[in-house]
Simulated scan of single mutants.
Amino acid sequence: MRLLLALLMMTALATAAHAGDLTVSVRDAAGRPVRDAVVTVHPASGIPPGPIRFSWPLRMTQQDIQFDPYVLVVPVGGTVSFPNLDRVRHQVYSFSRGNRFEIELYGRDETRTHTFRTPGVAALGCNIHDQMLAYIRVVDTPWAMKTPVSGDVVLRGVPAGSATLKIWHPRLAGRGNEMSRTITVTAAAGRQTISGDFTARAAVR
């Protein structure tokens, strides 16, 4: 047993020693930063076992007759809360393949939840208010973030070696509103700049 624990510890230390921080910069065709792009990295060596957890709250608020945030990144198996802070009732739903669900009408200061079990996208709407639109990106990797206004994210401790870098955005032109690139991650800090056409019509429910 002690030998097994020692081997596991050595493996973990070796993996940590050969991991680097990756900065990803997302830009549109004119070179401007893109907000709300979901950046994911899938190392060729695989994803560590165990549940994936993120530092941000898994929460999609309804306030002022809109969803907040516009894009939310959620791990597979993550349970999202849907608090209603409006004075009117909402009925949240998604018809997206693999992530279909519906939450019946509920009122102010009430909260409902839903667990997302399939990687992909859930385009959200409200049966009462057609103008409400948001997206939940369900991911199966711990190396995932959403770009802020700067268009830059830093993914910490990505295993060195070959990996697939993916960018998703509701207005990214292309199949599934996604683009991918094979990259090589090194133990030293690295940077990738991704440019794309973000003028497509937003993905709909």
Rank of each mutant, 00 (worst) to 15 (best):
R2L: 11
L8C: 08
M10N: 00
A12M: 10
T15R: 15
A16E: 07
A17H: 03
H18E: 08
T23Q: 15
S25G: 03
S25H: 14
R27G: 01
R27K: 15
A30H: 11
R32S: 13
V34R: 02
R35I: 11
V39E: 05
T40P: 05
V41T: 04
H42T: 14
P43D: 04
A44T: 08
A44Q: 12
S45C: 10
G46S: 09
P51H: 10
I52T: 06
W56E: 14
P57F: 10
P57G: 11
L58E: 06
L58H: 05
M60F: 00
T61F: 07
I65A: 12
I65K: 13
Q66C: 13
Q66R: 15
F67W: 07
D68I: 13
P69V: 12
Y70D: 15
V71I: 15
V71S: 14
V71R: 12
L72T: 04
L72K: 09
V74H: 08
P75S: 12
V76G: 06
P83E: 04
P83M: 08
V88I: 15
Q91P: 00
Q91D: 09
V92L: 02
Y93I: 04
Y93L: 12
S94D: 03
F95N: 14
R97K: 13
N99A: 04
F101S: 04
E102C: 01
E104I: 06
L105A: 11
T111C: 01
T111G: 00
T111Q: 04
H114I: 06
H114P: 03
F116G: 04
T118G: 00
A123L: 08
L124W: 02
C126L: 08
C126N: 09
C126I: 06
D130L: 13
Q131K: 13
M132I: 07
L133Q: 09
L133T: 02
I136S: 01
V138K: 03
D140I: 06
A144K: 04
K146L: 12
K146R: 15
T147H: 05
T147L: 06
P148V: 10
D152L: 12
V153F: 06
L155G: 07
V158F: 09
V158M: 08
P159D: 06
G161E: 04
G161A: 10
S162F: 01
T164M: 13
T164G: 09
L165T: 04
L165C: 09
L165Y: 10
K166E: 15
W168S: 06
L172W: 02
L172R: 05
G174Y: 00
G176V: 08
N177T: 03
N177Y: 14
S180G: 14
T182A: 12
T182D: 11
I183T: 02
T184Q: 13
T184N: 13
T186K: 11
T186N: 08
A187L: 02
A187G: 14
A187I: 01
A188Q: 14
A188F: 02
G190V: 07
Q192K: 05
I194D: 00
G196Q: 00
D197K: 03
T199K: 10
T199L: 09
T199A: 15
A200E: 01
A202R: 11
A203I: 13
V204E: 10
R205T: 06
